[in-house]
Amino acid sequence: MSDEQTHVRDFFTERAAGWDSRFPDDGPAYVSAVGLLGLRLGDAVLDAGCGTGRALPVLREAVGPTGTVLGADLTPAMLREAVRAGRDRNAALLLADVARVPLRDAVLDAVFGAGLVSHLAHPEAGLRELARVVRPVGRLALFHPIGRAALAARHGRALTGDDLRAEPNLRLLLARSGWHMDSYTDEENRFLALAHRTP
């Protein structure tokens, strides 16, 4: 495991037990974001960096009982919290780094990533790996339940031009990783970038 991966795992291990209670009002934002991903009954979707699995019930509802929902996370403590919350009933949980997803090529219809990009050790390689496991023109949602400015304020810092999630930076990053950005929303109460896999 790299130093970056160890740092991410340590960061989330310390916070896993109280993670859901820190963000009790995020549910509607997840529902809205998943709704915009355009999932259909029977689709296969991955929640990349699923954490405690807050998106998993919403993803299950979107793809129905015949669909496939996978949740992958690098931190065992977060997956334990997902199981404790009963969210493993909605998805198969994988202890995995999303930069090396244990799936064959082109087996998914979509990927959902909440708060994902800022925690990838190598964002371009990680997003390219997610493109690998998605079928041609498969979809990607990069989501956060609050916008960039609100998140920066929460952490006591200012937004800068080199912010990875700024629209021009993210558009270029996605293009280099095998994705085409379809829409970009950065509001006080939601960040959502939608993309599709390029051929």
Rank of each mutant, 00 (worst) to 15 (best):
Leu103Phe: 12
Ile146Phe: 12
Leu174Trp: 12
Asp186Gln: 07
Ala99Gln: 14
Leu116Thr: 06
Ala33Phe: 10
Leu192Ser: 05
Val111Gly: 10
Leu108Lys: 04
Met181Thr: 14
Gly42Thr: 04
Pro145Ser: 09
Val69Thr: 08
Arg87His: 14
Phe112Ser: 02
Val98Pro: 05
His7Tyr: 12
Met78Gln: 11
Leu59Ala: 08
Glu129Tyr: 01
Leu116Arg: 04
Leu170Cys: 09
Ser21His: 07
Arg132Ala: 12
Gly138Met: 08
Leu46Trp: 09
Pro28Tyr: 07
Phe23Met: 08
Gly38Asp: 08
His7Pro: 07
Ala77Ile: 01
Ser32Trp: 02
Ser2Gln: 10
Ala16Tyr: 05
Asn90Arg: 10
Val117Ser: 06
Leu103Trp: 07
Ala131Ile: 05
Gln5Ile: 00
Val31Trp: 02
Trp179Gln: 07
Leu70Arg: 09
Ala96Gln: 11
Pro102Ala: 12
Pro168Met: 05
Ala114Met: 04
Gly27Asp: 13
Glu124Ala: 12
Leu108Ile: 06
Glu14Met: 11
Pro102Glu: 12
Leu36Cys: 00
His155Cys: 00
Gly51Thr: 02
Leu94Ser: 01
Leu130Cys: 05
Thr185Gln: 15
Ile146Asp: 11
Ala153Ile: 00
Thr160Gly: 15
Thr6Phe: 04
Gly18Val: 06
Val58Phe: 09
Asp73Gln: 07
Ala131Cys: 08
Ala193Asn: 01
Gly156Cys: 04
Val58Cys: 03
Gly138Ser: 06
Tyr184Asn: 08
Ala175Val: 01
Arg148Lys: 13
Arg40Cys: 12
Leu74Gly: 04
Ser183Thr: 13
Ser177Gln: 09
Arg87Ala: 03
Phe12Gln: 06
Leu70Ile: 13
Ala131Glu: 03
Ala48Glu: 10
Pro28Phe: 05
Leu159Glu: 15
Leu46Ile: 10
Leu127Ile: 04
Thr13Ile: 01
Arg54Trp: 00
Leu159Pro: 10
Leu192Asp: 04
Ala193Gly: 01
Leu120Lys: 05
Val69Ala: 13
Arg165Gln: 15
Glu188Val: 13
Gly53Asp: 11
Ala44Leu: 04
Gly38Ser: 05
Ala114Leu: 01
Ala153Cys: 02
Ala114Gly: 13
Glu81Thr: 00
His7Glu: 15
Arg40Leu: 05
Ser183Phe: 02
Leu37Tyr: 09
Pro57Ser: 11
Cys50Ser: 14
Pro168Leu: 09
Ala106Thr: 02
Ala150Asn: 05
Arg84Asn: 04
Ala150Gln: 14
Leu46Arg: 03
Asp186Met: 06
Gly86Cys: 07
Leu41Val: 11
Ala96Met: 11
Tyr184Val: 08
Gly126Cys: 03
His144Met: 07
Leu41Arg: 15
Leu70Trp: 11
Gly49Cys: 09
Asp162Gly: 07
Pro102Ser: 12
Arg89Pro: 00
Arg157Thr: 12
Leu108Cys: 05
Leu116His: 03
Asp10His: 06
Leu108Phe: 06
Val45Ala: 12
Leu130His: 01
Gly178Lys: 01
Arg128Tyr: 00
Arg15Pro: 03
Asp105Met: 02
Met181Gln: 15
Gly147His: 10
Arg87Cys: 04
Arg165Ser: 14
Ile146Met: 14
Phe23Asn: 09
